[in-house]
Simulated scan of single mutants.
Amino acid sequence: MRRINALGRVLSPHTDKLVFSFLDVYRKIRKRLAAHPCRPRAPAAARHTGVLQDAANA
């Protein structure tokens, strides 16, 4: 989280938004992902909240 925070500080003069994503589902690959036996899932709410709290405290 410290590295992401540092990257955000470096980029902040040049952009308004920093998106950190493990998977971005593009329209072109949506059908292939839907047919794949290993489907991505959203993190549990508690884990998501913890990540956001860690980022805010970094």
Score class of each variant (00 low, 15 high):
residue 22 F to R: 05
residue 8 G to E: 03
residue 36 H to E: 04
residue 33 L to Q: 14
residue 14 H to M: 05
residue 55 A to M: 15
residue 44 A to S: 11
residue 21 S to Q: 11
residue 14 H to V: 01
residue 17 K to F: 15
residue 4 I to K: 01
residue 40 P to F: 07
residue 2 R to A: 05
residue 18 L to G: 03
residue 8 G to Q: 01
residue 56 A to V: 07
residue 53 Q to E: 07
residue 35 A to D: 06
residue 29 I to E: 06
residue 9 R to I: 02
residue 1 M to L: 10
residue 37 P to K: 03
residue 33 L to G: 09
residue 22 F to G: 09
residue 54 D to S: 08
residue 21 S to T: 15
residue 4 I to G: 00
residue 3 R to G: 07
residue 3 R to K: 12
residue 46 A to V: 15
residue 21 S to N: 13
residue 21 S to I: 15
residue 16 D to A: 02
residue 14 H to D: 03
residue 14 H to N: 08
residue 36 H to A: 04
residue 43 P to N: 05
residue 51 V to A: 09
residue 9 R to D: 00
residue 2 R to Y: 13
residue 18 L to E: 04
residue 20 F to D: 01
residue 54 D to V: 10
residue 20 F to K: 02
residue 19 V to M: 06
residue 58 A to K: 04
residue 15 T to A: 09
residue 8 G to Y: 03
residue 31 K to D: 05
residue 14 H to Y: 13
residue 14 H to P: 00
residue 37 P to D: 05
residue 25 V to L: 12
residue 27 R to H: 13
residue 13 P to N: 04
residue 57 N to M: 06
residue 50 G to M: 06
residue 29 I to Y: 14
residue 31 K to H: 10
residue 29 I to K: 12
residue 24 D to E: 14
residue 57 N to K: 10
residue 7 L to W: 02
residue 48 H to T: 10
residue 38 C to G: 06
residue 21 S to K: 14
residue 46 A to W: 13
residue 32 R to T: 13
residue 21 S to W: 14
residue 38 C to W: 09
residue 38 C to Q: 06
residue 46 A to K: 12
residue 54 D to T: 13
residue 29 I to G: 08
residue 34 A to V: 12
residue 30 R to T: 12
residue 5 N to S: 11
residue 27 R to G: 09
residue 1 M to C: 03
residue 11 L to C: 00
residue 44 A to R: 06
residue 19 V to L: 10
residue 38 C to E: 10
residue 12 S to Q: 01
residue 43 P to E: 07
residue 32 R to D: 15
residue 44 A to T: 14
residue 15 T to G: 01
residue 28 K to D: 02
residue 57 N to T: 09
residue 23 L to H: 13
residue 57 N to L: 08
residue 19 V to F: 02
residue 57 N to R: 13
residue 28 K to F: 15
residue 6 A to Q: 03
residue 12 S to T: 00
residue 50 G to P: 04
residue 50 G to A: 10
residue 30 R to F: 10
residue 19 V to T: 07
residue 14 H to L: 09
residue 16 D to H: 02
residue 11 L to P: 01
residue 45 A to C: 07
residue 41 R to D: 13
residue 48 H to R: 07
residue 44 A to C: 03
residue 35 A to Y: 10
residue 6 A to D: 03
residue 41 R to Y: 11
residue 9 R to F: 00
residue 15 T to V: 12
residue 28 K to H: 15
residue 16 D to E: 04
residue 36 H to L: 08
